[in-house]
Design a protein around this nucleic acid. Structure first.
Lengths: 230, 230
DNA sequence: TCAAAAGTGTTAGAAATACACCCATGA
DNA sequence: TCATGGGTGTATTTCTAACACTTTTGA
């Protein structure tokens, strides 16, 4: 049985970035070869024989887009027999998160065209990648309740409103500013920075905060079940 | 690159059962061939070329143990290059749940020996299966908060105390009986049955309840975020 | 001085927690 | 009648939810 098995494996990533104006964006690259030529697909590719799966993902993202994610987590393996016309190919799908700076795409870095798309306005996608993206967002919504993933999408120093707007975009519902601030500050996970946001486009400059990861780890080690937000 | 890829794929399952006396048990089968001969491993095996991954799991569980699970869900793919001495072999790991009846093992059904082990007293396990089991239990603990997985481990009609004890075993902490009942009943997910538990070993016979899946679906469709228990 | 976003407190209702005694059954 | 597990209520505290005006800045 194992001798005759012929299944190939790719590792692909749903890479997200966020900012308050544009919302949540996903990184796609335009396919330059069949199948699904000229459609947009997730960065990723075939796992090398001796390569850890996460390494494949980092390598392919870098090759196809020139970018490096600061957070990567596997979330599901897609394996329907007919999902790829080339034969049986499994896709080990990952969620990748980037901070707003460092997401600039330099055209011509590879031979592929890469672009950020708002998750609510995706182009025509290759294979089952639309389903993979939808599953990634569901996964993100669940994980965000208990894990500090949100901070992987924000600059090291950020205003509370930025965090709040991330939740509003992700869960697609309004959040009460006052209650949100109380709740977040009561958790004790944010450290006030001396600086304020420089040159806001408009309005009063916001206080900046940083995420206190040590405090989070301490709470988690104590066995406290942390509900960051819901 | 894809032409030279030589990676094989297995689908394996952490199958659980539960009862109040013995707690949570996991199904293992004794390996009859190298590597790790005579160690205990998860039921599972190589995915056939045109076979959906879940089908592999059902088939292998049936072949190795004669049992059928009533719930199956993929939770993680394990792919460290050195995890199997035979070469690069990925393991798409699943969580399987069974109801207390229908877990009787009939010896001699296959050529393998299969047994239930308490999750807290595992024997020596093959490959990285101890890690896979630990990850499955973490996954179960998380999913159980929002999904009605607990009922997959209980008989169709069960006393509330059975549900409560499942939570106590899984999270390894005591639960207040009165508060638990209030909370569970307030959710409105349990339907009172006319029957009472027949022939309890000791004490007053308990009222039986069934899980109201329609009600759960209705709440979920309304967008209510359901926290079953934590 | 205007427009835009930031910052801030109180109150009412809901939910969580802590806690102990009586009931139904079989041996 | 005893041992065993099942069933139940109340008071306190904590958390959640609803709600609007003032402050700071740049244009």
């Amino acid at each position: 049985m194992p001798v005759h098995q012929h299944i190939r494996v790719t590792a692909d990533a749903v890479v997200l970035r966020f900012n308050a104006k544009e919302g949540i964006m996903v990184l796609l690259s335009k396919r330059s070869i069949p199948p699904h030529i000229f459609k947009w697909g997730l960065p990723g590719g075939f796992v090398r024989n001796d390569e850890p799966i996460e390494t494949t993902v980092h390598r392919e993202i870098l090759e196809e887009t020139g970018l490096r994610v600061n957070y990567l987590e596997q979330f599901q393996t897609f394996g329907e027999p007919q999902r790829d016309p080339r034969g049986r190919i499994l896709c080990v799908a990952h969620l990748g998160l980037m901070k707003p700076n460092a997401t600039r795409l330099t055209p011509g870095a590879g031979n592929k065209e890469a672009r950020w798309f708002p998750v609510r306005e995706l182009p025509q996608t290759a294979f089952d990648h639309a389903e993979v993206i939808a599953t990634a967002l569901d996964h993100m919504r669940l994980r965000l309740r208990n894990e500090p993933l949100a901070f992987e999408l924000l600059d090291p120093k950020f205003p509370v409103s930025e965090l709040e707007k991330l939740y509003e975009w992700l869960y697609d519902r309004p959040v009460d500013r006052r209650n949100f601030q109380k709740r977040i500050h009561n958790l004790g996970l944010l450290t006030l920075q001396q600086e304020k946001l420089k040159h806001p486009l408009q309005g009063r400059p916001a206080q900046l905060f940083s995420f206190n990861r040590d405090k989070f780890t301490e709470l988690k080690d104590k066995g406290t079940f942390i509900e960051i937000f819901s």
